[in-house]
Amino acid sequence: MWDTIIITPFTNVLLFIYTLMGQNFGVAIILFTLLVRLITHPLMVSQIKGGQAMQELQNHPRYKEIQEKYKNDREKLAQEQAALLKELGINPFGSCLPLLIQFPIIIGLYQSLYKAMPHTPYDMLVLTRHLYPFLDISRILPINNQFLWMDLSQPERLVLPFLPFGIPVMAIIVMATTYIQSKLLTPPSTNPKDQTAMMSNMMNLYMPFLMGYMGLTLASGLSLYFIVSNLFSIGQYALLGKANWRNLLPKPKAVEEPEVKKTGKPVRGKK
């Protein structure tokens, strides 16, 4: 079912683009990733709008009022919040539902990339069985995995003549773009004690390392997909005016304030 609806069509479209692009698998991955991301663009816009609505809700006076009023009664708080959401016409799943719809597409994209680069005869057997009749197998196989300095079916290392080791350029770019993307996409938090914001910040640190590790160990074709996907997301947010570029700048250091300010006592002398 999953194969028939997602993986097989994705794999065939990817390989069709590959044949159109003069059997350049790197260009095929880039175009295929862009194509899928463009198709899911409306979902992304809907997700951003939903997220923004929820963000604005948190600054709404009535929302703050409800929070204060029912801070000791979580059930009543939830009921009142739901009523407010209904009244304001905000769908609480407006930001997460498009995200969930994108989820299988992203996984499918990733799996089809993996499937299009068979590692064993059995993988090849499975691939040949999933090709649509319009694809000419003699033109597809062997898949030309070379792109720039990389073999897209292998983890990438750039070997320079004066260095005794290879540099994992793609893994570094995957890390950098994941970090930039997560920083740009994180909305500014108004509450420094906000636990979800703290969790989000932790994820912003954790994800680049995780993705970098995957870029380091998995086929570089997947790294190429991660990079194109990250850059597309950054571009999407930038075009929609939702990228928080300030997040990339170092935050100004907190200045120690006079004791009088902290305690709220008058700062001016007696008249």
Binding site: E75, S95, C96, L99, L100, I106, Q195, T196, M199, L210
Partner: peptide, 24 residues
């Protein structure tokens, strides 16, 4: 019942974690 302290962030975290786990 749940409260909506910052649903977008929660979903983002869940989404990224699930995505990363599946990929791994």
């Amino acid at each position: 019942m749940h409260t909506f302290s910052s649903p977008k962030s929660i979903w983002k975290v869940i989404f990224l974690l699930a995505l990363a786990s599946l990929m791994l």
